[in-house]
Amino acid sequence: MSAPTLPAGEQREACVSDAASRSRPAPRREAFVRAVGRNLSAHAFLIGAVLCFSFFSWYPMVREFLLAFQKTEDGRTTWAGWDNLRTVFADPAIWQAWRGTLLFTGLALVLGFAVPFVVALVINEFRHAQAYLRLLVYLPVMLPPVASVLLFKYLYDPGYGLFNTVLDALHLPQQQWLQDPDTAMLSVVIAATWMNMGGATLIYLAALQSIPGELYEAAELDGAGVLRKIWHVTIPQTRLILSLLLLMQIVATMQVFTEPFLLTNGAGPEGSTTTVVYLIYQYAFNFNDYGAAAALGLLLLVLLAGFSAAYVRLSRTADDT
């Protein structure tokens, strides 16, 4: 038997549709081409960001890790193993640097962590001029750090500085702010707090304004005063922000360099303002020992990474309980 045949018109239509389907790309290919074209600009920005991070962040970290175990002499690089770490631990200045860094971190937590929160509480109570107050608080952050430090160096001057002028007007003894080992680190912390408190204050203020007003009204009905409302309502509602900024502040203050370097030339009187990062600077640019500088930087990195991991783990455990 012969196969049935279609009429001539239907055969022609079938051939045309078959040719069109063969000339059309597959649906998956069309979707892929459309997705690439639609997201081409996003991929371009993403690739640029990845390249910038690779070149300016990740590559220096990998290079520092390798340099911590190498020695460079007369332009020749050799493998040194643990010699750089032994050099760092044998240096008596390292313990003074760690002591200065921990002292700065402790004082910065007392001032730099508490003061922005108190300032945010005060600004939050204003019903008018909040925009002006936010600008006023954030203004020091917008100033160049060097200009801010030099301003405080002028204020701390023992001869004509504003601070000693105020003390003299109050009939109080004048201070050698940056020249006295007992007050040098505190003076550096005060300057650093003024320079960096604006960002933390705005974050705290945003967190405070997100707290429902019904909670404060309920606390007032229960007879709670200002301090009890802060302790039982404000702090629990902003606990996440407080813990996050506490971690960020500890990591930042452990890497302080600009303020003591410009205010007290780095070491300060009797080495009272020596920090770990300043010692890294000395190893690299004063002693030309880049291996020891990289080893000390790697040690600081490991310490901060371990502290951050432990802090996050303890925070999750506290939230679960």
Rank of each mutant, 00 (worst) to 15 (best):
E30M: 11
E30D: 10
E30P: 06
A31G: 03
F32L: 13
F32T: 09
F32N: 10
V33W: 12
V33P: 14
R34I: 09
R34T: 13
A35I: 04
A35E: 13
V36K: 02
V36H: 06
V36P: 02
G37Y: 00
G37S: 04
G37M: 03
G37C: 00
R38D: 06
R38Q: 14
N39F: 05
N39M: 01
N39H: 10
L40K: 04
L40T: 04
L40M: 11
L40D: 01
S41C: 00
S41V: 03
S41K: 01
A42C: 04
A42D: 02
H43V: 07
F45M: 12
F45P: 04
F45S: 05
L46W: 11
L46H: 09
L46A: 14
I47N: 08
I47R: 08
I47C: 08
G48A: 15
G48N: 11
G48L: 15
G48H: 09
G48M: 15
A49P: 05
A49W: 11
V50D: 09
V50W: 12
V50I: 15
L51C: 04
L51D: 02
L51P: 08
C52I: 00
C52E: 01
F53R: 07
F53T: 06
S54Y: 03
S54R: 04
S54Q: 08
F55T: 08
F55I: 11
F56W: 08
F56T: 12
F56S: 14
F56G: 08
S57A: 12
W58V: 13
W58L: 15
Y59C: 08
Y59N: 10
P60D: 00
P60N: 01
M61E: 08
V62F: 12
R63V: 05
E64Y: 05
E64C: 05
E64F: 05
E64A: 12
E64P: 05
F65I: 05
F65C: 06
L66A: 10
L66R: 12
L66M: 08
L66K: 06
L66H: 10
L66V: 07
